[in-house]
Amino acid sequence: MRTLIFRTVAPYLTSLMILFSIFVLLRGHNEPGGGFIGGLIAASAFAIYGIACGVSPVRRALYFHPMAISGFGLLVSAISGWLSLAFNVPFMTGLWTKVSVLGVPVDLSTVLFFDIGVYLVVLGSITSVALALEEREHG
């Protein structure tokens, strides 16, 4: 599997897949996509990188332990649910606001952060599993 071409292409392929996964995540509220799909794409990206170049470069690239990313994602999701309590509305009520980034109006919402949390959980958990199995493969 670790052919020269694969190893050369893998980093670029991975970066492209991760960019695509973020794109899928962010457009998910209006077009097909969302946190689950984005997370799965990103996890596949890291899995491919791991198969091509070994596990330790992936771990270095991730910087955090994948399970920590997963845990952080769960925290983000839970907090975006709890946030609505601060505004005296029931748990998980979506809150929306518009902010202007460089003159472009952008919708920000707790729902978006919730989806980002989903993305991170799926990304972290599945990457962690894939890497753990690959480690045995090479180790």
Binding site: F36, L40, V122, S125, I126, V129, L133
Partner: peptide, 17 residues
Amino acid sequence: VLTAIVISFSLFAFLLV
């Protein structure tokens, strides 16, 4: 079904390991 797919994948991975 969407969540079921992801969960059944997690279960499958767990059973595999």
